[in-house]
């Protein structure tokens, strides 16, 4: 049975560990800054439209997430603390805690990318902020849920660095297409109702991914 107090303890452990080691935050911050700077250098004085901006926004989020989110499980395997966790908490509690940490990290990441885009790109104007906000929230949850179960899988593999984006890309294609479409609508100023279809897909993706992950995680984690 899932227990909120135990899940909170897993989250507190990861947050405290992250604040001391900066395994993920530094990787995410470095990637966001270099990716946005590279885009700026490439564009020079050009002003990209909503479709390009939306695509570039989620490309930065995708690759930044790939560089940071896998750490939740990979660092436990690398440090040898995976067995300690297995002997301390149930797989359901552990997955819920790690998922919560990754959701928080992804939301932090999207907030940072949004702030940088608003500063760097004059044409990045959130004409329908409510659509953008909902897209970012459900997009972050979707990203985090897919990334968390994939992180658990690749943490058990030898070639972790290369395997993660390769495995994640096909799983995240439906999510990427949907968040790009919804973000484009938000930048173009279409009303929230116009993005209803995209948001429904996002909610469905999150539910399927989280439910599937909970069912699968014990098999991935236990042996």
């Amino acid at each position: 049975m899932l227990d909120l107090a135990r899940i909170a303890a897993v989250v507190r452990k990861d947050v405290r560990s992250e604040l001391r080691n900066r395994y993920s935050i530094n990787a995410l911050a470095m990637f966001v800054v270099t990716a946005v700077a590279t885009i700026l250098f490439a564009l020079r004085s050009e002003s990209p439209g909503p479709a390009s901006l939306s695509g570039m926004y989620w490309v930065v989020v995708f690759f930044s997430a790939m560089s940071g989110l896998a750490r939740v499980f990979v660092s436990e395997e690398e440090r040898g603390t995976a067995l300690t966790l297995q002997l301390t908490t149930s797989s359901g509690v552990l997955f819920a805690g790690k998922l919560a940490v990754n959701v928080a990290l992804t939301m932090l990441l999207t907030a940072a990318v949004t702030a940088l885009y608003l500063i760097a790109f004059p044409t990045f104007v959130l004409r329908t902020p409510e659509t953008f906000l909902l897209t970012v929230i459900f997009g972050s949850i979707g990203f985090a849920s897919a990334s968390t179960i994939l992180a658990a899988i690749i943490a058990k593999a030898n070639s972790r660095g290369t395997l993660y984006p390769v495995l994640a890309f096909p799983v995240l294609i439906p999510l990427l297409m949907t968040v790009m479409s919804a973000t484009e609508r938000a930048l173009e100023g279409e009303p929230l109702a116009a993005a209803a279809g995209d948001l429904q897909v996002l909610v469905g993706y999150c539910l399927i991914m989280i439910a599937g992950s909970f069912l699968l995680f014990d098999f991935v984690w236990s042996e």
Partner: peptide
């Protein structure tokens, strides 16, 4: 911290 954190994860 190790004792407190691991016990909190174990027993909530």
């Amino acid at each position: 911290e190790n004792i407190v954190i691991l016990e909190s994860m174990r027993n909530g």
